[in-house]
C-alpha cells in the first residue's frame, strides 16, 4: 500500500448482531468497529455457531444488525439499492443447492448479471470475463459440463469463479475452501490474496484452517463466545491464547522456517 490510507471499503461502527429472540436469543457480535481497506485480506475465525455466517449475511443485508452501522464504499448499507450493491460487493454462500442442470459457463456467466442491463444479453466481454474466471480456478476444460454432474469441490470452484466474474471491489466469502483439495485450497486463497494485492480488492472470508488463514490473510477477525471480537493484523491477533479462547481448546503456536503455524494440543 502506498502512503495515504485508502478510503475504507467496509466501515463497521458499533455493530451488534444477535440471533433469535427472548430466552433463546444470543448475541454473536458486540460493539464491533473496524475499517477494512482495499488491498486487505481478512479472515473470520471462530467455533461452529460463533456467528461467522451471520456476520457475513449481515454485511450483505440478509440479516439485520441489532445495532450499529455498516458502510460499503462510504455509503450506508441500507442506502444501497440491491442492484447497485451487487456491483460493489459479491458474496459466496456456504451452501448452494442446484436442482436444475445448467452448463458451468452459464453458471459463471450469472456473475455478470449485475453488470448487464435488463434489456441486453451478455456480450463477448462478459463471456471473456467468465472464461477468465474459469481459467483462474483451473476449470476451463469443464466450461460446457453440466453443474449437476460435478463433484462438490468442483461446484465450489464454479461458485467462486462466478464471484470472480462478478468482479466486485469487496469480496465476501463464507468458507470458500470447503470441499476443496489441498492444491485448490491454495489456488483459491492465493488468487484472492493476489486480487487484494494487485487489484486493490477488499477480501473477507471465513475459514477453519488456521494455518492457511495465517498465511494468506493480512488481518483476522476472531469471534468468541458472548459476542467478544478481536481483530487486527494477523501477526497481532492470531496467537495461541486468543485462538485457544475462541475455540475452547488449547492451540499451540510454533515456527516452521519463516512461517507461524498453529496446532491443536
Amino acid at each position: 500500500m502506498n502512503g495515504a490510507p485508502a478510503l475504507a471499503a467496509v466501515e463497521i461502527d458499533g455493530l451488534e448482531i444477535g440471533v433469535g429472540t427472548g430466552a433463546g436469543g444470543r448475541t454473536l457480535v458486540r460493539g464491533l468497529s473496524l475499517h477494512m481497506r482495499p488491498g486487505e485480506v481478512w479472515c473470520v475465525l471462530g467455533a461452529n455457531g460463533a456467528g461467522k455466517s451471520t456476520l457475513l449475511h449481515t454485511l450483505i443485508g440478509l440479516h439485520r444488525a441489532t445495532a450499529g452501522t455498516i458502510r460499503l464504499a462510504g455509503r450506508p448499507l441500507d442506502a444501497w439499492p440491491v442492484e447497485a450493491a451487487a456491483r460493489v460487493r459479491g458474496f459466496l454462500p456456504q451452501f448452494i443447492h442446484d436442482t436444475f442442470g445448467a452448463s458451468v459457463l452459464d453458471i459463471v456467466l450469472m456473475g455478470r448479471h449485475p453488470h448487464v442491463s435488463r434489456w441486453h444479453w451478455e456480450g463477448d466481454a462478459d463471456r471473456d470475463a467468465a472464461r477468465t474466471a474459469l481459467a483462474a480456478l483451473g476449470l476451463a476444460l469443464l466450461a460446457e459440463r453440466d453443474i449437476t454432474t460435478l463433484s462438490g469441490g468442483e461446484r465450489q470452484r464454479v461458485a467462486i469463479a462466478a464471484l470472480l466474474a462478478q468482479d466486485p471491489g469487496i469480496l465476501l466469502l463464507d468458507e470458500p475452501i470447503n470441499h476443496l483439495d489441498l492444491h485448490h485450497q491454495i489456488v483459491v486463497l492465493q488468487h484472492l490474496a493476489e486480487l487484494a494485492r494487485d487489484r486493490d480488492k477488499a477480501v473477507l472470508f471465513s475459514i477453519h484452517d488456521l494455518n492457511l488463514a495465517r498465511r494468506f490473510a493480512t488481518h483476522a477477525l476472531i469471534l468468541q463466545d458472548g459476542g467478544v471480537v478481536r481483530h487486527g493484523p494477523v501477526a497481532a491477533v492470531m496467537n495461541a491464547p486468543a485462538l485457544s479462547a475462541a475455540f475452547g481448546y488449547p492451540v499451540l503456536e510454533a515456527r516452521v522456517g519463516a512461517r507461524t503455524v498453529f496446532i491443536a494440543e
Binding site: 450483505i60 440491491v82 454462500p93 448452494i96 443447492h97 436444475f100 445448467a102 453458471i107 448479471h113
Partner: peptide, 14 residues
C-alpha cells in the same frame, strides 16, 4: 435464471 441458484445467491447478485 439467477433465482434458480437460490435466494441468497440471487440477492447477492442484485
Amino acid at each position: 435464471n439467477v433465482l434458480l441458484r437460490g435466494p441468497v445467491v440471487a440477492h447477492a447478485l442484485g
